[in-house]
Design a protein around this nucleic acid. Structure first.
Lengths: 358, 358
DNA sequence: CGTCTTTGGGATAACGATTTCCAAGAGACC
DNA sequence: GGTCTCTTGGAAATCGTTATCCCAAAGACG
């Protein structure tokens, strides 16, 4: 089923049919109708491969994320896909498995497929840099959530500030001695959260008794860290976790060792994944405006010039929202604990257009 | 950067370079080396769009799932992607949002993009049928996890049997009065689970006091169902849920109303998602061999003939494994509850090759 | 030594769309 | 009425690759 056949049945030339269907040039109404009718009758749908070869646009955008099994990413992916769909674009999704080599391979493969742009959440804020830059020299690229360098457009959330709010909240609850179960700082978000945590602890708690454990963004690491924590001679007032998965792992081990949250120690997660609200105790976490991040990233992808050429690079930073739940409210009596109605921070986008390299 | 330029710098014809790079025909070693060197030097990577146009194969497989935010799917997707990667194929992932119209639209779009095959988890076991059949008439199609009709190849898990094991386990724990928080039976898995549940209740508990609530696969529905359950005058012995998300929602509301699990009522999930093990109490659930399902589906995709033409249709059914945890062990004392060490069913593949329409 | 087969390189024709480019016809305007 | 512009349909070039076809050279074999 080619455009040629449609043209034949319509008694027209392929050129005219093409124009009639795409509206790229005016076609006499009568011929247009004939073309449309023939296409309809034959159930013709254009071969996008052929079209892509000629127009040099595939109508496809690639996206590379570190790990779809981390419930944080599906939410972003859905937002991105929804937005892309609205403009008739397909999403080519890849999971880099948090591996820089894999990530590079995937990006190259996407480029071979001549995608129209790439959304990438670089798994390593340093080593992913060359890959991101290379990609950006060929097609529009937007970094989403995580970044590797500031030479390429970025849309994400102010992690530093969000983490500071977490610590401030804990300090207000009377916590003075903190432990941080971090993810290794290969991911930019992890690095920013760590930094935010450290600075906030300095400010709000005078940096006392600041223990830090570095692993990854997994539940299993949370378990391991909790075991190490328990092996020390005393518990901190609060355990801050790099994300919800880690917090769940920590919670699991604490509980199995008879440590009560929030009675004996307060606990926080990050990302406000769906499960954070239904664990026991429900987890205080940080909600990010993912819908907006996704939308903005797609939007930005269309305005990024084809080949990054030293012009100003756009970066959008959204503000996250602290969601307080029972895991940081030792005072709440069971009756009061549902529904959770703690104080909340405000959210709102915060745009910054900066020169490259800033 | 085209093959023509490579050919020029190598002092060869494009045809020879093409052959040298793809190995589709023997090329004199010396010329081969020259072609490779030139390609390497120029950093040439073939334009897959042009190649696809000529060879009628894009090296891309489409996958349509109902909802990536359901943590069950990312696991399957990862398995599929891993397997595809091994054969150098890209995955074009789509989320149908559990909507039949959307699903149809996506499948059409995939066909336009001339993907080499489609993996689909049809959202409606009845209405998705036409779409699946249409797709199968154009490219190889394998249904994965869910199915719509048996005219198209399928890889999945024996839901019916798995659910029977759940009920049997509960009956052994002394439960006689059951409630089932179902997902509406639009998804084939939901329908099979319901059927398995009903039959097992008949057999093991004489069908006494069998309440059923039908909603969807979401946590929110679990909450709603639990509220309805609590509104009735008495609680059943056990609440069986269509999947883990639903169970989490149920658990959340039960807890907030002071109902103890497993003290007052036993509770089960399905899918054994990562969180099932870390809720409190940990959730008895059903683990499916998703890695194998994914692998088998990709494998099958390669052997399915291009156009479904009435030959025998392959269907592979794997067996799931019951994972018993504290939510169904009222007798376990806290000290014993960790790690969970309940009896486990065995898993194993179970292949069936059946004629179409069976 | 002649013929017959095999091997391998290169020219060229696809693949299926879009997009020049060209030409014919219709108005416009002096 | 003549020229000039504008419109619009169709022929043909084009995108970058691979497959087909042809031909020359080399080797096989009687």
């Amino acid at each position: 089923m080619t455009i040629r056949q449609v043209a034949t049945t319509a008694g027209l030339s392929p050129a005219t049919v093409s124009r009639a269907l795409s509206g790229s040039r005016r076609v006499a109404p009568e011929l247009q109708a004939r073309a449309l009718a023939a296409a309809e009758q034959l159930g013709y749908r254009a071969n996008r491969v052929a079209r892509a070869l000629r127009t040099r646009s595939t109508g496809t955008v690639g996206m590379v994320v570190p790990n779809i099994a981390n419930p944080f990413f599906p939410v972003i992916i859905q937002a991105v896909e929804k937005q892309l769909r609205a403009q008739g674009t397909q999403l080519l999704l890849c999971d880099s498995g948090d591996d820089v080599r894999q990530e590079a391979e995937l990006v190259h493969s996407l480029l071979e497929h001549r995608i129209d742009g790439i959304l990438v959440s670089p798994c390593d804020r340093v080593s992913s840099r060359t890959t991101v830059r290379l990609a950006a020299s060929q097609v529009p690229v937007v970094q989403i959530d995580r970044r590797a360098g500031s030479e390429v457009a970025f849309v994400g959330v102010d992690q530093d500030r969000a983490m500071a709010e977490v610590v401030e909240h804990l300090a207000r609850q009377g916590c003075r001695r903190f432990a941080y179960v971090a993810s290794s700082s290969r991911a930019s978000t992890a690095a920013e959260r760590s930094r935010g945590y450290r600075r906030a602890v300095q400010r709000f708690a005078n940096g006392s008794h600041d223990r830090l454990y570095a692993g990854d963004f997994s539940m299993e690491w949370g378990r391991e860290a909790a075991r190490r924590l328990l092996a020390e001679r005393d518990l901190p007032d609060a355990v801050v976790c790099a994300n919800d998965l880690v917090a769940l792992g920590v919670l699991d081990v604490l509980r199995s060792h008879g440590v009560d949250v929030p009675g004996d120690v307060l606990l926080t997660g990050f990302d406000d994944t769906e499960v954070a609200a239904v664990t026991w105790p429900p987890l205080t976490s940080v909600r990010q405006p993912l819908e907006e991040v996704g939308r903005r990233a797609v939007e930005l992808l269309r305005t990024v010039p084809d080949r990054a050429d030293g012009g100003p690079v756009r970066a959008t930073l959204f503000r996250a929202e602290l969601v307080v739940r029972r895991s940081t409210q030792p005072g709440a009596r069971p009756g009061e604990s549902w529904p959770p109605a703690g104080p909340r921070g405000q959210a709102g986008p915060q745009e910054a257009s900066r020169a490259a390299g800033s």
